[in-house]
Structure formats: structure tokens, C-alpha cells
């Protein structure tokens, strides 16, 4: 474990997590969630869990983001009521 690297990644993870729930636009929230997944992936990799990091990168950052975008394509920009 490399402490400075770990701290930097941790700060980015927290920033991305807070930003994803505070931002108003849904598409931006999904993109920030994808960035969060990549930082989590880096964190798993530097902790030595390469298999978990691989799964996080492919499932959460790859397919999960795409599925969320597909769901957002079904919504409209303004609410109807």
C-alpha cells in the first residue's frame, strides 16, 4: 500500500461521491458516478484485489453507466407537472 497514492485516490472518491448526489442534471450524475467507479477501481487495484478491480471497471464503470444512460434517454429534460 502506497500511502500518498491511497490518500489522493480516497479524496477523489469522496469528491466524486458527494458531487454525484448533489449535481442537478441526471446525465452529469451518471458520468460522475462512472468516474467514481474508476477511482474505486484504482483503489481496489492498489490494495492488491486485481480481480475485484477488473469487475468494478468492466461492470460498474462500463455496463452500469451505459444502462443508466439508456434509462435517462427515456426521461425528459423538464417535468410535466
Amino acid at each position: 500500500m502506497i500511502l500518498p497514492f491511497d490518500l489522493i485516490i480516497q479524496i477523489f472518491v469522496v469528491i466524486c461521491a458527494v458531487a454525484a448526489i448533489t449535481v442537478k442534471d441526471l446525465l452529469s450524475a451518471v458520468m460522475i458516478l462512472g468516474a467514481y467507479s474508476f477511482f474505486m477501481c484504482l483503489m481496489w487495484a492498489q490494495m492488491g484485489a486485481v480481480d475485484v478491480a477488473f469487475t468494478e471497471a468492466s461492470v460498474s464503470a462500463g455496463i452500469g453507466t451505459i444502462l443508466c444512460i439508456a434509462a435517462i434517454m427515456k426521461t425528459t429534460r423538464r417535468t410535466k407537472d
Binding site: 469487475t55 468492466s58 462500463g62 451505459i66
Partner: peptide, 21 residues
């Protein structure tokens, strides 16, 4: 090595999804 059926299947599915997108 790291990886396996699930991760490889997800990446293969992602390529199909990219084609569809």
C-alpha cells in the same frame, strides 16, 4: 490471471452494446 467468464462476458456484451449505440 485476473478476469474470467463474467468479466470477459461483460466486455464482450459492452462491445455489442457499442455497436447497438
Amino acid at each position: 490471471s485476473p478476469g474470467g467468464g463474467f468479466q470477459g462476458g461483460v466486455i464482450l456484451g459492452a462491445s455489442m452494446v457499442l455497436l447497438l449505440l
